[in-house]
């Protein structure tokens, strides 16, 4: 990110020198900074509302309830996890919290699941198949309602900012399912982990 950011600014100043638009670039700095604050303020309102509603879903046990429903599916996806391990429940909670946009609750659950998976991992330095599947679920990032994106559209006065809700849901579902398919295919193609490899280092 450091280099990307530097290059954005470097290229704009160099290009401006050639195109003679340095005055426009300077005023873009001021406008951009002001606009950022406006967006953040708008975001504050919508995010506060959405996270407030989602906190109720969390406290009322609704998130947990949905996670319970999903546990059998999670068990199928993670055949390596032994029965009775709390990892499956954590994974289901992690997924459900992510789906509700509760990333503050989802990440600790996910990290707890990673710890459990590390306990049963053969090689503590390399990722087990179960870990890769969990990461696939998280990097694909299934989300029901993209609250921040709606906030940005609304802050610029979109006529119908929630218009993108279902399209985004369709896309996030496709991406999530393809992540699961891809991870299971790559699992077969990737060389297996070494037994107890890395224990000595």
């Amino acid at each position: 990110m450091n280099y990307i950011w530097f290059f954005l600014i470097f290229i704009s100043i160099v290009t401006a020198a050639f195109t003679g638009r340095i005055d426009a670039v300077v005023s873009a700095i001021l406008d951009g900074a002001q606009k950022s604050v406006e967006i953040a303020l708008y975001l504050a309102g919508i995010m506060a509302f959405w996270l407030g509603i989602m906190r109720i879903a969390e406290k009322s046990g609704m998130v947990e309830f949905i996670a319970k429903l999903l546990t059998p599916v999670a068990r199928r996806l993670f055949p390596e996890i032994p029965d009775g391990s709390p990892a499956v429940g954590d994974i289901a909670m992690n997924f459900t919290a992510n789906a509700f946009g509760l990333s503050n609750a989802a990440t600790p659950m996910g990290l707890k699941a990673m710890e459990e998976l590390q306990k049963i991992n053969k090689d503590k330095n390399s990722a087990s198949n179960a870990m890769c599947t969990l990461l696939a679920m998280n990097t694909a990032g299934f989300q029901l309602v993209p609250a921040t994106v709606i906030a940005v559209l609304a802050s610029f006065g979109a006529k119908n900012p929630t218009e993108i809700v279902l399209p985004a849901l369709i896309v996030t579902t496709i991406a999530f399912l393809s992540a699961l398919v891809i991870v299971k295919i790559l699992e077969k193609l990737t060389p297996p982990q070494k037994e107890n490899g890395g224990e000595e280092c």
Binding site: E115, L117, N125, V183, T190
Partner: peptide
């Protein structure tokens, strides 16, 4: 974040999965 938290250094097929799914 996830691999860092448990000290995994070899991501194996997780990285490629993430990129392809993106």
């Amino acid at each position: 974040v996830y691999f860092g938290s448990v000290g995994i250094k070899k991501f194996r097929h997780a990285l490629l999965t993430g990129i392809l799914a993106d």
